[in-house]
């Protein structure tokens, strides 16, 4: 099997590994690094459960070769929260009960995080457009939209000096 030497950063930690060329990024993250927060569902890039960031871009890790992260900065759902606690998006998902089985949740959290970085105050329509490629079979989506709006609000009030707690 052909392999490639890959040097990358995953959740801020340097990683060096020889990776089979045909290994998918999600397989590398889950099976080699034990980062099982990233989930596989559709396997065809349409459900979003496997979303991770590669150089801040959200990608479907089920559709990307692991070798392609050479030199890149990878962040998974495990890399979001800090010792200070959950991120505003994560906290909003908890507060708005925007999850049930939770299998889609890491992907939604990643996608919503990406959205709010680019568009800090999205409209509901922008939220829906951005999340059209993420499937949730449990919630009916309404609580997820609420969570994103809620997170945007708490981030912008934190931004404007009001302390978010």
């Amino acid at each position: 099997m052909s392999e490639t030497l890959v040097r990358t950063t995953v959740n801020g930690r340097p990683v060096e590994a020889r990776i089979p060329n045909r290994m998918l990024l999600v397989e590398f993250l889950r099976d080699r690094l034990g980062l099982t927060g990233t989930k596989v569902s559709c396997g065809m890039q349409v459900c979003g459960a496997c979303t991770v960031f590669v150089d801040e871009r959200p990608v479907s890790s089920c559709g990307v070769l692991a070798c392609d992260i050479d030199g890149a900065d990878v962040v998974t759902v495990e890399g979001l929260a800090t010792d200070d606690g959950l991120t505003p998006v994560q906290q909003a998902f908890v507060d708005c009960s925007a999850l049930q089985c939770g299998f889609c949740t890491p992907g939604f959290v990643m996608m919503c995080t990406a959205l709010l970085r680019k568009t800090p105050n999205p409209t509901e329509e922008q939220v829906a457009h951005h999340l059209e490629g993420n499937l949730c079979r449990c919630t009916g989506y309404e609580p997820i939209v609420e969570a994103v709006m809620h997170a945007a609000e708490s981030m912008s009030s934190a931004e404007s000096g009001t302390r978010h707690d």
């Binding site: 959200p58 990608v59 479907s60 996608m111 999340l131 490629g133």
Partner: peptide
């Protein structure tokens, strides 16, 4: 087209 991840990559 596609979805936000496909458009990004």
């Amino acid at each position: 087209l596609g979805n936000a991840r496909v458009r990004a990559t």
